[in-house]
Write a protein that binds this DNA or RNA. Sequence first.
DNA 1: GATCAGTAATGTGGA
DNA 2: ATTACTGATC
Length: 728
Amino acid sequence: MDILKGLNQRQREAVKWAQSPVLILSGPGSGKTMVITHRIAYLIKELGVNPFNILAVTFTNKAADEMKKRVAKLLMAGRGSQVAGRRSQGNKRQATSDMPWIATFHSTCARVLRHDINQIGFDRNFVIYDDLDQLNLIKECLKELEIDPKQYRAPAFAAAICRAKENLIDYESYLIYTKTREDFYREMTAGVYEHYQKKLFKNNALDFDDLIMKTVELFREKPEVLEKYQERFIHILVDEYQDTNHAQYAFTKLLASKYKNICVVGDEDQAIYAFRSADIRNILEFEKDYKECKPEVFPLSMMEDYRSTQPIIDLANNLIVYNEERRKDKGKIILPKGKKKRKGPVPVLQELPDELEEADYVLGEVRRLHGEKKVPYHDMAVFYRVNAQSRVLEDAFRKARIPYAVVGALGFYEHKEIKDILAYLRVLINPKDSLSLKRIMNVPPRGIGKVTIQRMMDFANKKKITLWEAVRKVEEIKGLSSRSQWLVKNFRNLMFKYMELTRSLGVGELIKKLIKEIGYIRQLEKADTFTSEMRIENLKELIDAANQFEERNEDKSTQAFLEDVSLICEIDTWDDKAKAVTLMTLHNAKGLEFDTVFITGMEEGFLPHANAFREEMELEEERRLCYVGITRAKRHLYFTYADRRRLYGTTYWGLASRFIAEAGIEREEMAVPRGERFKVGVIIIHPEFGKGKIIKATGFGEDRKVEVVFAGGKRKKLAIKYANLQRI
DNA sequence: GATCAGTAATGTGGA
DNA sequence: ATTACTGATC
C-alpha cells in the first residue's frame, strides 16, 4: 500500500473511494494535488484501471504538467510488482499509453474536436482564434453590418458573445431570447453574434469558448460519439471545480453520465472566476447533480493546512467568514496540521504615502528577508489586483537590481512579430483563415496595400469565395493594376512553396526558413527601433520553442505546434525555479505558494475593486481573491496600502481596504476615534444569539449601531443602546 | 502605397 | 500612459 503512505486519514478516503461520484472540498494547503495524483496512481496500480481510461482536467497547462510529473513519479515507483495485477477495462484495441490523459479543458476539447468535429459539419483542420483575433473579426462584422464602432464598442460585443458561449447559448437561442423582450442592444448583439459565428465558420476557425461549446454540441447531437468518449474516459477527475462554467460543467456531466466515476476537487472559498461565468453552484450543489453521491460519506472536506503558520491561517479564517455564499456543511475553517499550532511572524500591515513608496517598502523588505532570513528570491511574490499596478514595482526592482519575473501583461505569444509568423503557419495549414491571411499579405511590406486587399476582399465577397481563393484567381480581378497583380502572384507563389514545405519540413525548420525568406529580420534591422532588437530575440525564441516542441512531442506537425501555442497561457510559461521574485495578479496566484507574500494595493477601489461594489456577490468574490492571496503565504505575509495612488494618469485617494479590518489585522492608529468599544472585528456575546463578530459599525455614542455575524452564520443589525452586548 | 504624426478612446480579472 | 485609428505627406 505504498501509494497511501504519507497521506492522512481524510486523504486516504478520498483516494480510495471509487464507488460513487466524489466531491472533495479542499482548503488551502491541504494537499489537493497530492490527493488527485495519488488517486490516479491508486486507480491504476491498485484497481488495475487502464491509464488510457482516465481523464484529469485542470485549468492551466502548468497545473496539468505538474500533475503529470507527479503521477509519472508515482507510477514509476515500485514498478513491476504491481503490473501483474493490472486488469484492462476494455479498449484493448487501442494503443495503451502508460500515462493517463491529463490536460486543460480547452486542450481536451480541442483534441476531441480534431478527431470528430467533422461529424457536425466542420473541418477538422480548424484554427483556434485568440481574443485578439476574435476582436478583429468582430470589428470586421461591425463594418459589414454597418454598426458604428464608436457608438457601440467591439469589446462589449466580444464580452457578450463570450458570456453567451460560456453558458452554451448559441446565436439562434440568443436571438430567440431577445425576441421575448424589447431590447434594442441585445437584438443588435444577436445580429453581431450570428454574423461573427458565420464568419468563423467561413474562416474555418474556432474561438476559445467554441472549443468547449462545440464539444458539448457534438456530444449532444451525436450520441455515438459521446459514447465513444464515455468508454474512453471511464474515470474522470476535475480540479478547481469551483471555477467551472456551465459549458465545462455540461462537458463533464455528459462524459460522466454513463459510468459516473467522477471525482471533483475544489474549494468554493477560492472561486474567483465568476466574471467569466464560472458558476459556484456547480460545487455547492454537486450532490443534487450526482444523486449517486453518498451523502453519508461526502463531501469529504480536507481542511488541514500543511502550508501556512498559525497567524496566517487566523487571518484567512477571520476574513472568509464574512462571505455568505459558502457551503454550510463543512465547518469550514482552516486548521493547522496535526492540531499543533505552527508559530510564525505576525503579518505586517504598512501604510504608505503613495505607490512609489509602497514599491520602495516592498523592495526594502525583500532585501531584508533575503539578507537576514535567507529567503531565496524565488520564494517571494508580490501580488496586486490589476496588471497596471505592476509597472511601478517593476521599475523599483529594476533599479534595485533584484531579479524579478512578471507573470501576465503581454505574453510571449501575443507579441506582434510572433503573431505574424503564427498567422503564416495558420494560413499554410488552413488557407480559409482569411483573418490571418489579411494580416500577413503585406507583412513585411511587399507593396500589397490596403486598397488592393480591400478590392480582393470585395471580389471574394461578390463571388462568395474565400480571400485565399481570390488570391488564387487574382488574374480575374478587374480594377487591379498589373503591378498589384504581379505582387499578389509573387505572394501566392511564396505560399504555394511553403504549403509544400509544410509537408516535408519540421515546424522549427519551416519557421526558420520562412522568416529568412520573407526577410522579417532584415526588415526589423532596417527599422532599428527601440523594440527591434527584442523582436529579433523573440523570433529566435520562437524557432527555439518550435524545435523544443519537436523534441518533446510525438506529433511534430505544424498543426500540433499551432494548437499547443494557441492554448498556452501566461502562467504556463512562468518558471518557478528561476531565481527571481515573482510579480503577478491575485488571479494568477491561485494554486501557488511562497515563503513570503506581499499583497499590495490594499485599498477600497482596488481590493475590493471599484467595479465590484454594486453587488454583494461581486464583493464576496473580491474577498475570496484576498483570501487566495493570504493563503499563498507560508511564513511571511505583508499588506500594504497607499494614501494616494497614481494609475491610468489619475490620482486615487485611498482608504484602507475593508478586508484589513475583517481579517483582523489591526494597527493602533486604525482604532475608531474616542475609543469606541464596539468596532469592526470585535468579538461580542449577545444574551440571545450568543457569540458573534462585528462586521459593520456606524454612528457614535448613543447612536452606535453594529452589524454582527453570529456563530451559526446569522447576521443581525443591532443598536448598542438596546442590545446588551458584552465584549470578550 | 508607405510612413508618420496627431488625435481619440480606453483602463479588472483570463483560457 | 498606451494603443488604435485617421489623415496628410512623401
